[in-house]
Design a protein around this nucleic acid. Sequence first.
DNA 1: CGGGTGGTTGATACTTATCAATGGCTGTGG
DNA 2: CCACAGCCATTGATAAGTATCAACCACCCG
Lengths: 281, 281
Amino acid sequence: MHVTGLAVQKLFGKQNGNESAFARPDLAEPAAKPLPNDAADKADGMMSCLICPANDLTLCTGAKPSESRIDWAADTMELASSTQLIPARRTICHPKEWSDTIPVICQGWAASSITLLDGRRQILAFLLPGDLVSTVSLLEPMSGRTVEAVTDVTCRKFSRADLKAFVFQRPNLLDKLSKTWLDERSQADQLALDLGRRTADERIARLILNVVERLAKRGLVKGAAMEFPLRQRHVADATGLTPVHVSKVLGEFQRADLIDISRRTLTILNEPELRRVADWR
Amino acid sequence: MHVTGLAVQKLFGKQNGNESAFARPDLAEPAAKPLPNDAADKADGMMSCLICPANDLTLCTGAKPSESRIDWAADTMELASSTQLIPARRTICHPKEWSDTIPVICQGWAASSITLLDGRRQILAFLLPGDLVSTVSLLEPMSGRTVEAVTDVTCRKFSRADLKAFVFQRPNLLDKLSKTWLDERSQADQLALDLGRRTADERIARLILNVVERLAKRGLVKGAAMEFPLRQRHVADATGLTPVHVSKVLGEFQRADLIDISRRTLTILNEPELRRVADWR
DNA sequence: CGGGTGGTTGATACTTATCAATGGCTGTGG
DNA sequence: CCACAGCCATTGATAAGTATCAACCACCCG
């Protein structure tokens, strides 16, 4: 039974199951720095919604084709998002904090997870730029899930009420909503299948392929190489394995020249074989 | 790596991954007997929607309080459901067959699952009377999931188009829809957590408690006893374990006087302890 | 530097799967 | 009515897969 971050919890007093095991106990929350909206857009190369990588329900693609993207962007601004810069390993959203606000990742990677009281943790999804945590969170407050930054993340938090109203004014968005919902559902089903019925090798290979596919959709793959900021700890928590075991499996994969991971960069060396290992499609 | 029903598949020619491992190869589909609508309601004690056990999104509870239940029932009839009687272990809905029609369980237990080509199978949910397979299936055609009867099942298949229109005419139903969606999502999250991070004992205990809770909502628990038609094979496929191991764990539970299962009846003998084992709440 | 974080590796333990044999039960066809 | 075929559950012996523990090294950043 693998427990994440228990050592840290033991060291720092009472077991607080809801506190992210990643959050550094020496740095009190809230530590995210709010930025003025316009400043943020130019400050550090963050591109705002203008080139927000399109995902199926990205708000940025919600603009009717006839609308200029600028107008849409302005539109989004109206929604009183507060833009935040969140450093790696900090919690973006606490399990209880899902009341009025929903975060959208603009830049960087995040992980959405549930944690048990004793520290066991399951990552349900990695969030890439443009991702909503879950389409449900649009309509109803969600709870129990922690969202935390894998890399430094810039994200916007929208008021749910506003966003909901916004979406409901645009019928074509609603349609996308239900498609995204379907997609989400089948992702969840696949996750259960993976965790319940697949071997460690398969799970890890599938995780990699899954991420690659999503990165490709966003144009973030150069040749066969791409940024891969996940720690083995993340891979472990996403696949229901132990970091040690993940290390061994990834080691095998590298020795077999399926992939290469170094300096936070992933290169796919033998995709067909990797797919075979993953039992993909 | 546990594989469901592989022997059967080997025996009967080509591996057909989409064919339910439970379906008996000697009985060709479609084997469900369609019944005339009115006949069905009286025939074998099936109660139609009149006493369809209420679940959060049961169509029967969708009737406005002012409406008499009879009116509602009539309403439902309009929807051109075809009522079917499906014997235990037969497939209700095939992975590909999710085009226009969606099944609702009226009586009996069913299981919704995904199956891999090599026969490994993960049950995603057990369906009790009043259950929809998934709220998404209302809006978009779903695929990849198999629904099969655990006990003899009576179910209705509705046309999605009709049902969708029906729901959209009733705003209060829409509201329930989004709540049910949230619920479904969190069920899926819990499933992933269970499969990824919990021990066999915990998973099985939780499955039992989960089922008990749902049965209780439907008034199907008498004292501490209730019908429990699941085979150990079902429990195994729902928990990502092996039937053999399930047998051993259930054996322990019984020897520890936590539960008793005999003649398809489950009795909870020591609920507090069972909850403790399940790490419940 | 020095501390925290991450990754690797080997030895070992534990959980769960696999295999195999047995017996009970149920429905079916002669 | 019996015999038989399938299914189901149980049990024990053994194997495989993964976790746990511990030590070590390699970073990176302050």
